[in-house]
């Protein structure tokens, strides 16, 4: 994946700029609920919640794809594990959000450790394809599970509770809990990418040979990152299930995995803020277009093709070429 590391090498963003941009985004998002009420458009809160859920998913993928140069095409599986953790536990009478998160994370960790260990034996196109295959395995597992609704999915009776409180019941509560988790995931990943571990991961992306020549074997670090990314993505899954009050295998389809890569490429990989912006913008675009036409995918697809053809590096690449915010994303 030399093309990837070369594409990334020159634009190692300044840290302060990234943090500033992230804080601006958080502040903007926090202002959405009061703004939506003032405009008399409360559905905006729901849309913004979905945007943030996928921003979390995109952030988690950025750790392995952007920082680790591991192009996973099966990341949506972890969205599904989080979502089905909610479905399974609430069916068993367990409603606590933290237990839901814990279960989703545990399931994801096991799946990621097993499949990651096998996938990391391969490189390049093979890695993309084998992660896709494992994603499809997870997808078909839940599709054929008739007790969990199979293909049709399963509706939840209620949203998770937080320490016994129905904090998520209202759109506003759901929104702010999601925002809080987004901030947490971003902050955690931000620290992680600067840590010793983050340096090893980034170093392996830039030159695996160099890392071996100073005494690192990349495998345990790559696998650990793969597991962490899966666990973080399951948080988005738990939130997605709660937001929709419904769980379906469609969350784990290869389309979702592709969409997550699209978010990253749109926003710019390997900077965290790019992933966050990509997640927010992609969902906003989809929801916005869907309000105009049932054939919104046509316009969305066209935008993707045009961005790929004419704006390599996604939105951040575009900004950079316009001479704006070189350090921003």
């Amino acid at each position: 994946m030399t093309d990837l590391s070369q594409a990334l090498a020159p634009a190692r963003p300044r840290l302060a700029g990234r943090l500033k941009l992230a804080l601006c985004i958080f502040a903007l998002m926090a202002a959405v609920p009061p703004l939506a009420h003032a405009l008399g458009e409360p559905f905006l809160i729901v849309v913004a919640t979905r945007m943030m859920v996928f921003a979390i998913a995109a952030l988690s993928l950025d750790l392995i794809l952007g920082y680790g140069a591991m192009v996973s095409f099966g990341h949506a599986a972890y969205l599904g594990f989080g979502a089905y953790a909610v479905a399974v536990l609430s069916r068993a009478g367990i409603d606590d959000l933290f237990l839901h998160l814990l279960a989703g994370i545990a399931a994801s960790a096991v799946f990621a450790a097993l499949t990651g260990a096998i996938s990391l034996r391969t490189r390049g196109v093979y890695f993309i394809m084998i992660t896709l295959a494992f994603g499809q395995m997870a997808f078909f597992f839940f599709v054929s599970f008739s007790t969990l609704g199979g293909d049709d999915g399963v509706a939840l009776t209620a949203r998770s509770t937080v320490l016994g409180m129905p904090l998520l019941q209202g759109a506003q509560g759901m929104f702010y809990v999601t925002l809080a988790l987004l901030v947490l995931v971003f902050a955690g990943l931000y620290r992680l990418t600067l840590s010793r571990f983050g340096r090893v991961l980034t170093g392996t992306r830039e030159s695996a040979l160099r890392m071996q020549a100073i005494g690192f074997r990349p495998f345990p670090y790559q696998l650990t990152a793969y597991v962490i990314a899966g666990c973080l993505c399951s948080i988005a899954g738990v939130l997605l299930a709660n937001q929709a009050i419904y769980v379906s295998p469609a969350y784990m389809s290869w389309h979702r995995s592709g969409e997550m890569i699209v978010m990253l490429v749109l926003g710019g990989i390997g900077s965290l803020t790019g992933a966050m912006v990509g997640g927010l913008v992609t969902i906003a675009l989809e929801e916005g277009l869907a309000r105009y036409s049932e054939h919104w995918r046509l316009g969305f697809g066209l935008i993707l093709v045009l961005v790929a053809l004419f704006s390599p590096g996604g939105l951040s690449g575009l900004l950079r070429r316009l001479g704006l915010g070189r350090d921003a994303t």
Partner: peptide, 15 residues
């Protein structure tokens, strides 16, 4: 890069 190719051809699938 592979990623640009994924972006474009994924868009084509949708279109």
């Amino acid at each position: 890069s592979h990623l640009d190719q994924v972006l474009a051809t994924f868009g084509l699938v949708l279109v």
